[in-house]
Design a protein around this nucleic acid. Sequence first.
DNA 1: CTGGATCCCTCACGATACTG
DNA 2: CAGTATCGTGAGGGATCCAG
Lengths: 225, 225
Amino acid sequence: MAERTYGQFCGFARAVEVVGERWAFLIIRDLLARPKRFTDLLNGLPGIPTNVLTTRLKELEQAGVLRRRVLPRPAGSIVYELTEHGAELEDTVMALGRWGAKTLDTPREGEIITVDSLIMAFRTIFQAHEARGVTVSYELSFGDIVLHIRIDKGKIRVGAGPLPEADLILEAGPGIKALMAGEITPAQALADGTVHIVRGTRKEFVRFAQLFKIDVSPAQQQALA
Amino acid sequence: MAERTYGQFCGFARAVEVVGERWAFLIIRDLLARPKRFTDLLNGLPGIPTNVLTTRLKELEQAGVLRRRVLPRPAGSIVYELTEHGAELEDTVMALGRWGAKTLDTPREGEIITVDSLIMAFRTIFQAHEARGVTVSYELSFGDIVLHIRIDKGKIRVGAGPLPEADLILEAGPGIKALMAGEITPAQALADGTVHIVRGTRKEFVRFAQLFKIDVSPAQQQALA
DNA sequence: CTGGATCCCTCACGATACTG
DNA sequence: CAGTATCGTGAGGGATCCAG
């Protein structure tokens, strides 16, 4: 296997050699949401050839980013999960996701939305400072995609699947990005059908919009840290 | 120009489409240090083919990450510089550089060190909280590579070239990484010749080592112990 | 069904030479 | 200095096949 390197003795260059191969960073993002099987990864990465996925998994395992684990009986199946070293890429993934979100407007022809991209997106745009001491739960549907958010005393957990007992249940489309970016108000989002409240109050929805916002200035973030 | 996309409506995926092409992220890192001409970029990116550099520059210009600017007379030459949008990748570059530095041990066969990689490296590992109110200047030489650091009331600027009036002038090799990672002490670095003080006190050098540190992850610490 | 391996084809990338 | 032109190679895209 010819190593594709950059010929520089430099931490950044070495990092790019690991995560910069095609599909590699998306694999890591999906595994940040939670451990997955080969087929789960395939489904979450539209268009990736199986041989490329196999190659990336081996390379990333070699690099100490993830590990291949055989589940105990009776499941006996195989899952891929990030090592601690791999999980430390979360900051980078969030920083890059935040940057990319700024120029995200509307879906391109054929583009899909995946659960894991949304899970990481909501983790990324979560305004921790607005959530001090807050305990609340949400369920969000985007077409077939359903995910839930639990905020427990300001700490967030985002996962796939429904949460029937959630305080606020929403149905939305890609247009919800405009709400998160502050381009439209919560009232507008409801009025034009971008978001539909299945359960919960408008007031609760306004708080939701405060808790998740895209454009956070670096200065503001530093002030929080 | 066939667009290589990932088919996901997702900020992170869009970002990876921009910076994930081969060499792209390194070009951005070099431009974060300062604007550059085509040839400067070539020199800082060992092995990049000229046509690939041309292609990347056009793509990144198209993506609004950098701009091509013709300098006014009499210079008349062309520089590439990041747009504001491109400069906002600094957080991500630092986060990724920090991650990669953790597993950086010794140079591989034929690997070189570039000025710009070092400039970004020192910006990245700067411990701002240790530098409150500090004003001091350094000049560092790594073989042919010379760079300087000015810390003015806790604010850092790192640039290429010498700084004859610096408070501390050092000569070092790649082994200095061990010092920054806390694997050896300043005293050891001087004793084994990893670092040589050209001008300045040992006390000043100890402070230098406090101001620049690679954060070692818990996992890495365990591996070392 | 999961978890891949194998094949073929294309095009992005790498190397080198050359030009305004 | 700032690229363009040309050409060979191999990584990635896409489909199919196979073992447990």
